Amino acid sequence: AVSDRLIGRKGVVMEAISPQNSALVKVDGETWRATSGTVLDVGEEVSVKAIEGVKLVVEKLE
């Protein structure tokens, strides 16, 4: 799938994300809905860990 190429890519949080709420991230110039197990604020850099349906699963870039 096209989205599989995004695993391992870096992105930027466009809307705050919490474990209860998905929000938008920008990866390679494209906007995607994403979820995370932690709270992520706007502007934080993230890494794509997986794809669940049409959502990216991201975590904060260390």
Rank of each mutant, 00 (worst) to 15 (best):
M14N: 02
M14Y: 05
A50P: 01
W32Q: 09
S3G: 10
V12F: 06
R9H: 07
V12I: 13
V54L: 14
V42G: 04
S3E: 08
V12N: 03
L24A: 05
E52L: 11
E30R: 06
V46Y: 00
S3Y: 08
D28G: 07
K10R: 13
R33P: 15
A1V: 12
R5D: 08
V27P: 01
I51G: 01
L61C: 09
L6H: 03
E45M: 13
G43C: 13
G11N: 01
M14V: 14
N21W: 09
L24T: 08
V13L: 08
K60I: 06
R9K: 13
G53Q: 03
G53K: 04
V57P: 03
T38N: 09
V57N: 02
W32G: 08
A23F: 15
V27Y: 00
D41G: 11
K10T: 12
V27G: 01
G43E: 02
T35E: 11
D28Y: 01
E44G: 05
S22N: 10
V27T: 00
V39C: 13
S18R: 07
S36V: 05
G8D: 04
T38P: 05
G43T: 01
A1W: 11
P19N: 12
G53A: 03
I51Y: 05
E44T: 12
V48Q: 01
A23G: 15
G53Y: 00
S18W: 11
V42E: 06
E44V: 10
W32T: 09
L40R: 00
A50D: 07
A1M: 12
K10E: 05
V39R: 11
K10Q: 08
E44W: 09
G43V: 02
T31D: 13
E45C: 15
G8R: 00
Q20L: 11
E62S: 12
T31E: 13
M14E: 05
K60R: 12
K10D: 04
A1F: 11
V39P: 14
V13H: 01
Q20M: 11
G11I: 01
A1N: 11
V48L: 01
N21Y: 11
R9W: 02
L56Q: 01
E15A: 10
N21G: 14
K55A: 11
A16H: 08
V46T: 01
L61T: 09
V27H: 02
E59W: 00
K55R: 13
V27D: 00
A16S: 10
E52K: 08
D28T: 01
I7H: 03
R33D: 14
R33A: 15
V42W: 04
V13Q: 01
M14D: 03
D28N: 07
L56M: 05
T35R: 05
G29M: 03
D4S: 12
S47E: 14
G11W: 00
V13F: 01
S36I: 04
V58Y: 00
V39E: 11
V2K: 09
M14L: 13
E45A: 10
I51S: 02
